[in-house]
């Protein structure tokens, strides 16, 4: 099986390595490391538990959906003995726990099973599409952060000014406008009128510049509403911090308003902002389906959509599990980022 099939096992390894990285980045190498290790292990344990629970829930939901894949494949007029033979071939006659464990062991060894409609291994289907959806999500997240951080910080540092009011008004709009509508406007302006970008489709990664260009409009359409939310969170979190006693203390030390903001308020304000970034990444990866439709991108969202229509349940099952896996890993990374930002989580009081 191809490399994407091995994602769960390798992903787990990556996370452990990352935790070491984060720890070193935090300048953390003394005798109290055990508290940090305990924190990371605790988070890791919760990651594994979440994955187990999620897999059971996904499996159960798919099982209770009416419509047996075998009968769907053979059509309504299939003979009972043919149906039974196909069921046996697909393993559908086995008891539920056996099928669950077969599915999970398959996932762990990279065997996602075969798609019933495409007649190809699910792993291949996913590996093609994840190279669209994952870069798109990361691209959108980077854009969203690049827009939101300066906007939020600027608005907070000049609270009540014309700039603040303008930015807050713009974020209000950004939250309210649906992203697919915004995507269509982008296509209208930049693809149809100005002809700077193509209106849809994805040329593949053979030419990275072309690929990035094809992802630019979808990434902007995804990023702007997220940036609006993130900017608002950044602003309010920073304003909370600027009202804290320790900001008054550093002002009394002789730091200017600006220095107090950048050196002290921003890092403390990042803690709630990180939570939102984690949630947003999950949304961008799994929730890009509408944007993928608008721009005709062969991403995971479209794959799920088509598989659901075709009752290709093994694909749905596996892709949903993969998305859940990504979301849980991202949350784990966010937890590690908390520890990097906030020493109260690294050491015991």
């Amino acid at each position: 099986m191809g490399p994407p099939g091995a994602v769960p096992a390798e992903g787990g390894q990556d996370c452990a390595d990352l935790s070491v990285l984060v720890r070193c980045a935090a300048g953390y190498c003394d005798g109290q490391a055990s508290a940090m290790i305990r924190y990371v292990l605790g988070r890791f344990l919760s990651l594994v538990l979440s994955l187990v629970v999620a897999s059971i829930v996904i499996f159960a939901v798919i099982e209770v959906i009416p419509g047996d894949p075998a009968s769907f494949m053979l059509g309504v007029n299939a003979r009972a003995d043919t149906l039974a033979a196909l069921r046996a071939e697909m393993g559908l006659d086995q008891p539920l726990p056996v099928r669950y464990f077969a599915w999970v062991t398959g996932l762990l060894t990279g065997d996602f099973g075969n798609s019933w409609t495409y007649k190809t291994p699910v792993a291949e289907l996913v590996s093609d599409r994840i190279w669209v959806s994952l870069p798109l999500a990361i691209y959108a997240l980077i854009l969203s952060t690049l827009i939101a951080f300066p906007a939020g910080i600027y608005a907070a540092s000049r609270r009540g000014s014309a700039g603040d009011v303008t930015i807050m008004g713009a974020t209000q709009l950004g939250v309210a406008i649906p992203n697919f509508w915004f995507a269509m406007i982008l296509v209208l302006i930049f693809a149809i009128n100005l002809r700077w970008f193509s209106a849809g489709g994805f040329p593949g990664w053979d030419n990275p510049m072309q690929a990035l260009k094809a992802l630019t409009l979808p990434a902007i359409a995804l990023a702007l509403p997220q940036a609006a939310i993130l900017a608002r969170v950044m602003r309010s979190s920073l304003l909370d911090m600027l009202g804290e006693d320790f900001i008054r203390t550093v002002r009394a030390k002789g730091l200017s308003r600006r220095q107090a903001l950048w050196r002290h308020a921003v890092r403390n304000a990042l803690i709630p902002v990180l939570t939102i970034i984690g949630l947003q990444f999950s949304f961008l990866l799994a929730g890009g389906i509408i944007i993928e439709q608008v721009f005709f991108l062969p991403g995971l969202g479209r794959l799920i959509f088509q598989s659901i229509s075709a009752r290709d349940l093994i694909v749905v099952e596996s892709v949903v599990m993969l998305l859940v896996f990504t979301v849980i890993v991202v949350n784990f990374l966010v937890d590690l980022a908390y520890a990097a930002v906030d020493p109260r989580l690294r050491r015991k009081a």
Binding site: D245, F246, A252, K253, G254, L255, V341, D342, P343
Partner: peptide, 24 residues
């Protein structure tokens, strides 16, 4: 800003919140 901390310093009431929690 030059004078604060240099020629005059200030100590506040609430020591529990007067320090930045994420710096040594």
């Amino acid at each position: 800003c030059q004078m604060r901390g240099n020629s005059m310093g200030m100590v506040f009431q609430e020591p529990m919140t007067a320090l930045n929690p994420v710096q040594t």
